[in-house]
């Protein structure tokens, strides 16, 4: 269930810090490019290009793939697209059901599930205490029990809880860890899985990730079309109201 709140790791917090980090990463890239130009001889180096200015994300929204066209290099655009997608993938509504261990999490602070439940052999609990013992196919407001069809955990190989965006990216590209799912299947999961749909409309006072299933799937397809490049290990998403 989804009940409590605690602050997220600093590198995953939305807002100003993220803006700064993103600008730093892109700024470093621009500085390198400028330095390379300076070694090229002859002509004076062009004035240092600033980082592409991305349209700010509206509150509760994701940037669209078109917002990233300002980044001319497809590989750099791909990396930036993935960072935008990671605003969803690292959100508590998503990571709570993507743990590496046997316990789902709840709330905004990754508290262990209460009552104490176990993953079980298929991610659906153990005899006597299956996910479906309590979770229905829809939210139960009278008991504050969240629900959606086939409530269950993602396999432990697909753990996102506490994982950096770059590492999530590498994991998504590794069929050994996605149960053989290719990238198009992952875009499909984001757009059509009822549990993902629940995450974007979790009900009660639960925070939702930015965007919608369609919006994050559009970004995923654009990421795939630009080569599905992964961001550098320390990169975090550009800011935007969550």
């Amino acid at each position: 269930m989804e009940r409590a709140a605690r602050s997220r790791p600093a590198h995953l917090r939305p807002g100003r810090d993220r803006d700064r980090v993103f600008v730093r990463v892109l700024g470093a890239t621009a500085a390198l490019a400028a330095a390379a130009g300076a070694c090229g001889g002859g002509r004076p180096p062009p004035p240092p290009a600033g980082p592409p200015v991305l349209a700010p994300a509206a509150a509760g929204a994701l940037r669209s793939p078109d917002d990233f066209l300002a980044i001319a290099d497809p590989a750099a655009r791909s990396r930036a697209l993935f960072l935008e997608i990671s605003r969803v993938l690292t959100h508590p509504r998503c990571v709570n059901c993507h743990p590496a261990d046997d316990s789902p999490r709840q709330g905004d602070d990754a508290l262990r599930h209460d009552p104490p439940v176990a993953r079980g052999p298929d991610g659906r609990g153990v005899p006597g205490l299956h996910c479906g013992s309590c979770h229905q196919d829809r939210n139960l407001d009278h008991a504050r029990v969240p629900g959606a069809p086939d409530w269950h955990l993602a396999p432990a190989t697909m753990a996102w809880l506490g994982v950096e965006p770059a590492a999530i990216c590498l994991q998504l590209k590794d069929p050994a860890r996605t149960g053989g799912k290719g990238l198009p299947a992952i875009a499909h999961h984001l757009e059509h899985d009822p549990l993902v749909a629940w995450g974007f409309a979790p009900g009660a006072d639960r925070a939702a990730p930015p965007g919608s299933p369609a919006a994050v799937a559009a970004l995923a397809r654009a990421w795939i079309e630009t080569g599905a490049h992964c961001p550098p290990p320390t990169a975090t998403p550009a800011g935007g109201a969550p």
Binding site: D114, P115, P127, G128, H130, G132, S133, C134, H142, V145
Partner: peptide
């Protein structure tokens, strides 16, 4: 009454469920 205690456990088609929810 909110799936926390298990006092209401019954079986539905042989599987345990919490009847309060």
């Amino acid at each position: 009454g909110e799936a926390h205690c298990g006092a209401c456990t019954v079986h539905l088609d042989g599987r345990a469920v919490r009847a309060c929810v």
